[in-house]
Design a protein around this nucleic acid. Structure first.
Lengths: 140, 140
DNA sequence: CTAAACAGTGGAGTACGGTCCAAGGTCAAG
DNA sequence: CTTGACCTTGGACCGTACTCCACTGTTTAG
């Protein structure tokens, strides 16, 4: 598969794929004429890359995952370990999100004065006359 | 509060705070000598910024949130609406993560050939002799 | 009064993740 | 044999989020 088709099938641009090759995310073999040639699995791999990326993994991290999978005698075990690691990361991210969600949910309807916390040039007073119940609390 | 103290209390550098002011994330009033002067609430605000940021919100998004909170006659309702919106975003992110988690968990112990999908210059063959059960499946 | 600590500005540089462009090579159809 | 689609490379450029630097002004402690 040449770069154009891979681009079409993944929704990425040719430039993006060339960039990914440059940073080691994907390795193209070459045809006799110098054109890149990708196996069909490259489509799935790039979709995985996109998925991982939108979940907050950097290209370097994703590439490292790929790297670690190569050069391992039996990939099966290594894969399981790697996936378990990723799951831990995902779980950690999820609980961070859950914490923020709780934070946010608590503030709904309480009239918490985030406003007092957004400097707005009006002098930082309390123009509403309402009391200021502590402003946002511990976020960390 | 001057910039140095704010920096110390938030763990940010002065440069970062100046940068945040430049992009409208925080607005400093000025003392007679030109020094920035921040209200104590700025600490909580910057902590909130960090929290939101590590959860994947861009500075522009965070700034917009702040913007929207200003110029609203009664901030309390606007705040609740905004928080509910953020909660939806957080929920969406969490379910994406949950989906990836499932994906990953399913692959643990299955020996799924992600390797076949990471071009490695050895020709793309199947050096292990094991069959290739479809490589990664639908990620989207 | 001087030195250090703190503040200000503008501008350059960095890392990441692309995106665009110019100049040219390859290939199939007409 | 030309046209057009497709491919190559290298390098410039963009937005985001800082980070560092040089140079200058202000405040504070000895």
């Amino acid at each position: 598969m040449r770069i154009g088709e891979l681009a079409a099938q993944t929704g990425m641009t040719r430039d993006t794929i060339r960039f990914y090759e440059k940073v080691g995310l994907i390795a193209g073999r070459r045809l006799a004429n110098g054109y890149r040639d990708f196996p069909p699995e490259a489509v799935a791999w790039l979709q995985y890359v996109r998925a991982a990326q939108t979940l907050g993994f950097s290209l370097a991290e994703i590439a490292r995952t790929g790297e670690e999978l190569r050069g391992v005698p039996d990939a099966s075990e290594a894969l399981s370990a790697l996936f378990e690691e990723k799951i831990k990361l995902v779980d950690a991210r999820m609980s961070e999100l859950a914490a923020l969600r709780t934070e946010l949910a608590e503030r709904v309807g309480t009239g918490c004065p985030l406003r007092a916390v957004v400097p707005d040039g009006n002098g930082g007073g309390n123009p509403t006359g309402r009391p200021s119940p502590k402003a946002l609390g511990p976020v960390n």
